[in-house]
């Protein structure tokens, strides 16, 4: 199981990084999303993998619980990353609509005026 999770994190990271290195905004957004999955799973997994032991306290008997702290951190991370994705999407959309170009590189322009002495 650990190997499955670790390899999934690795593959998601690799795919995310590869897409972030593309030159158009949409693949970069996809890449960011994949990277977000990778990071969230990574953080979650730092609590180690446990099945069938959710951190819901059982009042009636002593049972084992998984680590709740990474879960709380990742929960807010998921919501925040939605906010981040939304902002990035908005910026990409605004940039595309304004310039009719969804490239991520700055357009090459002629050198500006010389600065004053």
């Amino acid at each position: 199981m650990e190997l499955l999770v670790a390899s999934a994190v690795g593959i998601l990271t690799a795919a995310g990084v590869y897409l972030i290195l593309r030159r158009r905004s949409f693949p970069v957004i996809l890449g960011l999303s994949l990277l977000t999955y990778a990071v969230n799973v990574f953080l979650f997994a730092t609590g180690r993998l446990v099945t069938g032991a959710p951190p819901i306290l059982n009042k009636y008997e002593e049972v084992a619980y998984t680590d709740p702290l990474p879960q709380a951190l990742v929960l807010t991370a998921i919501v925040i990353s939605f906010g981040m994705t939304a902002v990035v999407v908005m910026i990409a959309l605004g940039a595309y609509l304004s310039s009719r170009d969804d490239g991520t590189a700055m357009p090459v322009e002629a050198d500006g005026a010389e600065e004053d002495a």
């Binding site: 650990e2 190997l3 593959i11 990271t13 690799a14 590869y18």
Partner: peptide, 21 residues
């Protein structure tokens, strides 16, 4: 880019595997 991605994926995966074990 693929090489960069593969190396970083290997790094992230390896790190979490090391941690999980």
């Amino acid at each position: 880019d693929g090489a960069i991605a593969a190396v970083s994926g290997l790094g992230a995966g390896g790190l979490i595997y090391a941690l999980l074990m």
